[in-house]
Amino acid sequence: MSSLKLTLKVWRQPSRDEAGQFHTYHLEDVSTEMSFLEMLDVLNENLIAQDEEPVAFDHDCREGICGMCSLMINGQAHGPDNETTTCQLHMRHFRDGDTIVIEPWRAKAFPVIRDLVVDRSALDRVIAAGGYVSVNCGSAPDANAVLVPKTDADKAMDAAACIGCGACVAACKNASAMLFVGAKVSQMALLPQGKPERASRVLNMVARMDEEGFGNCTNTAECEAACPAGISLSNIARLNREYLKAALTAAN
């Protein structure tokens, strides 16, 4: 275990409507065993000791599954490691003397609430537009009544692994949410349970995605590279396919 001396350039913004700016902090004795968020905990403890308000950042499970943590770390969503959330990023990925720039996710659809905390409810509204199977509780047939080929179930699971953190939007130069939407549309399109609402789902979710102000997909694959859950770009192709099919075959 060794320790690092770091310079942190952190975005501070008191509220949604107030202007923000970078503040520079110096931190010593950062253990390489720490997670990135634990490093921020230490920073906050120092700030409190100096009567400065701690930096606000979103986090919850700290084991990489809830999708609540975010952060653009040196220009990379969730930092330099691959298939990793910020909470699972460890300080051993940094070198002594490094300067680390920490910014919030930036997108019109993700307004900053405070410091590094952004509002990602746009993603919830996209799901509300159709990212589910409309089955009321209590009326389901026996779980084994419908067979699902293992390969389809596996592919659906690959897509369903999305943790909804918004890194795809953050990393995309156009702040596009296509990987997020593609993952949910793919999961449902691959499973027989999702078939009845297949067309309306994709049309409604894409319409909502556009309303929320996300950008267009340019197939740069930055989303895939930033995704902590390893969601593949093929899900975006499937989304496009599903959309084209639904648009061409819609009744009106």
């Binding site: 970078f22 220009g75 997108a107 019109k108 156009n174 702040a175 996300f214 340019t218 740069t220």
Partner: peptide
């Protein structure tokens, strides 16, 4: 689309680096 894409991120990043 270029115009829309610009509008989709009003505040730019200070630093942005590819992860690909």
């Amino acid at each position: 689309t270029a115009g829309e894409n610009r509008a989709a991120r009003e505040v730019k990043y200070d630093t942005q680096r590819s992860k690909v």
